[in-house]
Design a protein around this nucleic acid. Structure first.
Length: 442
RNA sequence: GGGGUCGUAGUGAACCGGUCAUCACGUCUCCCUGUCACGGAGAAGAUAGCGGGUUCAAUUCCCGUCGACCCCGCCA
């Protein structure tokens, strides 16, 4: 008999009819001669009523095929918490139970509403933990974020590109890189699709990419991974102010899309609705003045915001602008990569920006230097060898429009949309210092 | 790189310088045809991470070690 998806069992024409469902046993409530099972598939969950002789072998996570009759539940037995709560699949003497794959005893309880595990247990049993509805939901949200980003970038006329993650050139400077064996050559894992997306601007004018990036920073924090997913946009014929409009537009569209698609999940996680008020824009120095005035910390000499500054700025924006976002601009040129364009009005600061969301940086970017000679100067002033960047420099040597772009960290956005405690929860298979079987001694 | 906290059945937690180390969930046995994280009765399951020290006595206090988690720094 052909499989019926669980959610489709609700359809009127199925009532009273025999159906076959495939799925996983979630919970088992044994009443002696009769056993209740919650069985789920990708569409939903349904209660099975099965007689003891047939149902006794079934336990949580068994993969099963069950044939029975769809019954309407009596009014006093409806479960309003379940989408299929007004029906159930009745499997009596005429029904059929088939175990497609038996599950061994589980190392922890899967039946409860929350999966209350310590992080190492959660990750050591990752594929099992991911089966839990609440864990799986994180990646439903992540999928919706990817979708929202793609839609928003396409709305801007961007062409999707795919770029390499094995790079031969030296790094852009800054973060530590992973060095790899590559035949006779030195090669590295890419820290960012940055240079490649810029190189494609003269070709497509506007591009976007969803790419992996690798950082060998020995950072052990709740918000750092060594392998992350970036969502990048790069656009030609744009100037600084316009870029700020675009990045805010993409951020808002992406998050609106994801939160619309995943309303139930966000409610389940107890997440407050995102405040989409007018996003305040501050320069770094203005932001630091504000931190001093509102929160009494003097960080005016720092080249970046501290984690606490980011939290407080967002608190301020929420209160005074009804916005969960803040755009911070004009970071010191010296603290930014070589391709960042200095502000012509004050070259000590750059045409760079970060977008903060609920207390963390989820995006950064800048207007880029598109003048070939200025780019050469910028590299030399940082002790970089332009010869190592020949392919990249061709872009500017042969004419590149004024351009800029930005980049979101997918895992960070996911983490903060769902208010997760650790970024590792927002990656299906997180890579960090410990979790590649190597313990770095630092 | 600096600092902090923690390590107790399969999982999550509690307690305590001194009888048998406690609880919840899970597991096993039995009872139950209306539960929905079902309920009830019983049982098994822990060398208290490892090594050393203090003490009449250490799971508890101290040191080391291994591991985990967190904060700061670093972070295209």
């Amino acid at each position: 008999m052909e499989r019926t998806l669980i959610l489709d069992c609700k359809e009127k024409e199925k009532i009273g009819k025999e159906v076959t469902i495939d799925g996983f046993v979630q919970t088992r409530r044994d009443h002696g001669k009769i056993i209740f099972l919650d069985v789920s598939d990708r569409s939903g969950i349904i209660q099975i009523v099965v007689h003891k002789d047939k149902g006794d072998v079934l336990h949580p996570q068994d993969v099963v095929r069950i044939t029975g009759t769809i019954n309407v539940r009596p009014a006093n037995m409806v479960n309003p918490a379940l989408a299929t709560g007004n029906i159930e699949l009745y499997c009596d003497a005429n029904g059929k139970v088939e175990v497609l794959s038996k599950a061994q005893e589980l190392p922890f309880d899967m039946g409860s509403k929350d999966l209350n595990l310590q992080l190492p247990t959660l990750l050591d049993f990752r594929t099992l933990a991911l089966r839990h509805p609440k864990i799986k939901a994180i990646f439903k949200v992540q999928s919706a974020l990817l979708d929202g980003f793609r839609k928003a970038a396409k709305d801007l006329g961007c062409t999707e590109i795919v770029v390499p993650t094995i790079v031969a050139g030296a790094t852009e400077g800054g973060a530590e890189v992973f060095k790899i064996d590559y035949f006779e050559h030195k090669a590295y894992l890419s820290q960012s699709p940055q240079l490649y997306k810029q190189m494609l601007v003269p070709i497509f004018e506007r591009v976007f990419t969803i790419a992996k990036a690798y950082r060998a920073e020995p950072s052990v924090t709740t918000r750092h991974l060594t392998e992350v997913t970036q969502m990048d946009v790069e656009m030609g014929f744009t100037e600084f102010e316009k870029l700020l409009d675009y990045l805010e537009e993409v951020a808002v569209k992406m998050l609106k899309h994801a939160t619309d698609e995943c309303k139930e999940i966000l409610a389940d996680f107890g997440i407050e609705e995102i405040a989409f008020g007018q996003i305040p824009r501050l320069t770094l120095r203005e932001a630091q003045e504000l931190i001093l005035k509102e929160f009494g910390r003097d960080n005016r000499k720092e080249k970046d915001l501290t984690p606490q500054d980011e939290i407080d700025l967002c608190k301020w924006a929420k209160g005074s602008h009804k916005s969960d976002f803040v755009t911070v601009t004009h970071f010191p040129t010296a603290a930014k990569p070589f391709y960042t364009k200095p502000d012509p009005k004050n070259p000590e600061y750059s045409l760079s920006y970060d977008l903060l969301f609920r207390g963390v940086e989820i995006l950064s970017g800048s207007q880029r230097i598109n003048d070939y000679n200025q780019l050469l100067e910028s590299m030399k002033s940082r002790g970089m060898n332009p010869e190592a960047f020949e392919l990249y420099l061709q872009t500017f040597k042969y004419g590149c429009p004024p351009e800029g772009g930005f980049s979101f960290g997918l895992e960070r956005v996911t983490m903060h949309v769902l208010n997760l405690a650790n970024i590792r929860e927002a990656s299906l298979f997180p890579r960090d210092m410990e979790r590649v079987d190597i313990r770095l001694n630092s």
